[in-house]
Design a binder for these strands. Structure first.
Lengths: 154, 154
DNA sequence: GTGATTGCAAAGCGTTTGCACCGTA
DNA sequence: TACGGTGCAAACGCTTTGCAATCAC
């Protein structure tokens, strides 16, 4: 949260790029710096705008490529944004949590009522008012596991 | 899960459209039918392809509009798909769950270790192998709440 | 009959690709 | 110096919008 920790984070990320065999160009450092300094989830365009302060010759394409590398290195993650996820499933009344098979796309519903306690704990600590929650478990259903074994695929 | 339940679901949805003041056109019914029958999370294009079997004159645009109405009526929900969410946040080592402020975009991390038990329970019941989980709480942070009060906005 | 709803075409937006030039190691 | 990395422009795919024709109520 403090300014010093953003410096530490940047140093860690530079090292990760190095040891991953990636060159440390000024364009990449500009992108790293923006995310290291920010406590927000930013989209590519906003990262682009902020990073151009550090590196005016930066192109938007490089932002995308750098972000992809950061995902691969585990330095950044994508954040859920309800507006942009483009697959739809029926709502099962009373069951708001999902189990999604990554292979066949089939969904199952379950109710994780114990989540209420977690949400309250989080809210109490931080003053954050939780309005919505998003819990989905992703994996392989029994059928797909069986099919993949017989096919010998991964 | 059974075929009969898909009929019941369709009937429920037809009623919901009616009581919501929406007309029951053949195009809409085709889209409803596809989602009622499917136990999968489908994207708009796939819904379009399947719905054209019922209503060959259907247009893709109508699929989008019908889905939007279904979201508004709470009949369908969007499903997380890692590939398509386009906001990025730094990864905080060891803390994989997120608290996202919907107003300022700021993120906080927390570790919900009790989720492991839930995931195991789900896996045990269904034969589902959970490979990944996705938990994000969305709401308003303390600062934004305060700012919105002074501004008198929603 | 009338106003909501539709489909087409085109615009819009975010993201990816092709390619010649550039800069780090 | 060599080759990974860059930026520009164009292509791309998904989604939304404008508008006249259509259809449920």
């Amino acid at each position: 949260m403090a300014a010093s920790s953003s410096e530490a984070r940047l140093a860690r990320w530079r090292a990760a790029f190095k040891s991953g065999g990636y060159r440390l160009t000024s364009a990449r450092v500009a992108v790293l710096r923006v995310l290291a300094e920010s406590q927000q989830a930013l989209d590519a365009t906003r990262i682009f705008d902020r990073a151009r302060v550090y590196e005016p010759r930066l192109g938007l394409v490089t932002v995308y490529r750098t972000l992809e590398t950061m995902l691969a290195l585990g330095l950044a993650q994508k954040v859920h944004c309800p507006a942009q996820c483009a697959r739809y499933a029926a709502v099962e009344p009373g069951h708001n949590h999902l189990l999604v098979c990554r292979r066949c796309g089939r969904v199952w519903y379950f109710s994780g009522d114990d989540l209420g306690a977690l949400m309250q704990a989080v809210a109490g600590e931080s003053g954050f008012r939780v309005e919505d929650h998003w819990l989905q478990l992703i994996g392989l259903c029994a059928r797909c596991r069986a099919e993949m074994e017989t096919e010998g695929a991964v």
